[in-house]
């Protein structure tokens, strides 16, 4: 199976998971979205070379996946797809920051610490976002944004961008399959073919996006409303939100990893 087909199935798989019926799925989407935003904000508040205090934060994406009956494999696969980007963002730090710092018993370049910190933060952020999508779905996230009074146009843009992503992958899949069926042993498209092929895929995608927009606007007729479950923000949603924020603050203010390390190694007073 081509990697594009795989990507399409992975995208759909994550979306399908959001139709589950765990207690997490039944929570108000705004509670889950706000909790995830709080998680990202707390992650971003750490110093750029901190690594160890970040590790306990893995509990959030793991808990979302475990409580939401989300299998880890699709989440891990999508995370692996994002890893090159995360690594790319932090890769230049070891070149820029060469001053030596102590890391346990070792002396290493400060740049490597920043790189590792970015990699951990990025991985935690992406896995939390994936777990959120898997227990809420893009429609749920959009409903949460609307509940949070985000401008309707912006929410529609997000939903349409998500739909456009599907279209782009579908069109690319068709074009590449058609190429391969005629390419024989040539296999994957050669560099000289990529230019016209990408152009063609984009034109076809824009054409199709236009037809979808026409079909949508004929039923929308200026209404600007999207369907979605209307659920009230209940005490259980508030409890979920407050509970997690309290835990994030605790983990931010108290270095649990170091404390546990000292406890295990007998270093506590």
């Amino acid at each position: 199976m081509s990697s594009l087909v795989q990507t399409l199935y992975e995208l759909r798989r994550i979306d399908e998971l959001s139709r589950g019926d765990s207690f997490l799925h039944r929570l108000h989407p705004a509670a889950k979205l706000l909790t995830t935003l709080a998680f990202l904000a707390v992650l971003a508040s750490f110093e750029r070379h901190q690594i160890i205090p970040l590790l306990p934060f893995a509990v959030y994406p793991i808990a979302l996946a475990a409580w939401g009956d989300v299998p880890f494999r699709p989440i891990m696969r999508r995370l692996m797809m994002a890893e090159p980007l995360i690594i790319g963002v932090g890769l230049l730090n070891p070149l820029w920051e060469r001053s030596a710092v102590a890391f346990g018993p070792w002396q290493i370049s400060a740049g490597w610490l920043v790189f590792a910190s970015i990699a951990v933060k990025g991985s935690l952020a992406v896995s939390a976002a994936l777990a959120l999508t898997a227990v809420t779905g893009m429609d749920g996230v959009a409903a949460a944004l609307r509940a949070m009074k985000v401008p309707r146009l912006m929410v529609m843009e997000i939903q349409m961008t998500y739909r456009y992503l599907y279209l782009l992958v579908e069109e690319a899949m068709r074009t590449i399959n058609a190429y391969r069926l005629r390419a024989g042993r040539a296999g994957n498209p050669k560099p000289g073919v990529w230019g016209p092929m990408v152009g063609r895929i984009l034109i076809r995608t824009v054409d199709r996006a236009e037809r979808i927009h026409q079909a949508m606007s004929l039923r929308e007729r200026g209404g600007g409303r999207f369907p979605g479950r209307v659920i009230k923000f209940a005490w259980k949603d508030a409890l979920f939100l407050c509970g997690w924020i309290a835990l994030f603050l605790f983990l931010r203010l108290f270095d649990l990893s170091s404390w546990l390390g000292a406890l295990v190694l007998g270093g506590l007073p």
Binding site: D15, S18, R19, G137, M138, D139, R163, I212, A215, M216, R219, E220, R221, G222, G223, G224, R225, F226, P227, G228
Partner: peptide, 15 residues
């Protein structure tokens, strides 16, 4: 274009 048939059918009447 919605993720469930029911939501797609509801789109017009909601609007």
């Amino acid at each position: 274009f919605m993720s469930r048939v029911g939501d797609d059918v509801a789109f017009g009447p909601i609007n």
